[in-house]
Design a protein around this nucleic acid. Structure first.
Lengths: 138, 138
DNA sequence: AATAATAGTTAGCCAGGCTAAGTTAGACTG
DNA sequence: CAGTCTAACTTAGCCTGGCTAACTATTATT
């Protein structure tokens, strides 16, 4: 297979996988973006700028995202004692609990899908993951 | 690796790949959804319902999508002589030309990314594609 | 002929992106 | 040290792309 052919197949499958992921989160009490943001906060408080960069999003977008998580009490805003311009964001207990629950059900969904494959197919995916992870990081 | 661990890694990489794809289409004269719809029309006219199902979307969503493609003349609506309720949609010459151009640039982008990998990594992805394609089709 | 079902569209809502412009605080400079 | 520049956020206003509910028009059923 030439690189171009591979690119074409990959492009097609990516679209398929996006739809798969969408189904995996449908009906859950957290959109996939909100889930991703909560995940970034697991290791402790972060600043808005960091979050925006990590998610490949502009600051205003992250502001709105955090507003929506703050309102139901899943995250809390704080301040940086060293620099009054920066706002920090951290998980509340409630937010942490929600994150864990949603993660469990997402992983369960994907696990169920992976179970329908053969052992060989799962291994093929497993082997390809590091390569996929490298894509676009250059 | 257990299936659950694989599910967790895959879930993480999928998010990464989504962001990659988003960058691949940024600034192009067609969003990825519009591109996907045009792609569905390559084989000839389709009805609205078919398109909506194929894209995992409700009919009203597809109506709006087609409206936006029809306005600049990339697709044209037609009628089914056998059933006056159904509307067909087909590519115009302009739409076909646009589709080809955008596909070329998407594939070029992904190709460029794949070129940064080793031959072994490309093969790993190539081997995993059929397994990924099976996911969620059950 | 009346009623039910099917195919689309319209209207109105929400999430999640963006840019431009405003505010406040820190950092530099003459 | 006053004035200006830069940085970190937020607000406002716009767009895409999803949804449901309600409407119109046509076909199918009884």
């Amino acid at each position: 297979m030439t690189t171009d052919e591979l690119a074409e197949s990959l492009s097609k499958e990516l679209r398929h996988l996006v739809l798969l992921l969408r189904r995996a989160v449908a009906g859950q009490p957290l959109t996939s973006q909100q889930y991703a943001v909560l995940g970034s906060l697991e290791g402790g408080p972060r600043r808005m700028t960091e979050l925006a960069e990590e998610h490949g999003v502009q600051l205003p977008t992250m502001t709105v995202q955090i507003n929506r998580l703050e309102e139901p009490g899943l995250v809390a805003r704080g301040a940086d004692p060293a620099d009054a311009r920066v706002r920090t964001v951290e998980l509340t207990d409630e937010g942490r609990a929600r994150l864990v629950a949603v993660r469990r059900s997402r992983v369960a969904y994907l696990s169920g899908q992976l179970d329908t494959l053969t052992q060989g197919e799962r291994e093929a995916i497993s082997v390809a993951l590091p390569a996929l992870a490298k894509l676009g990081r250059s």
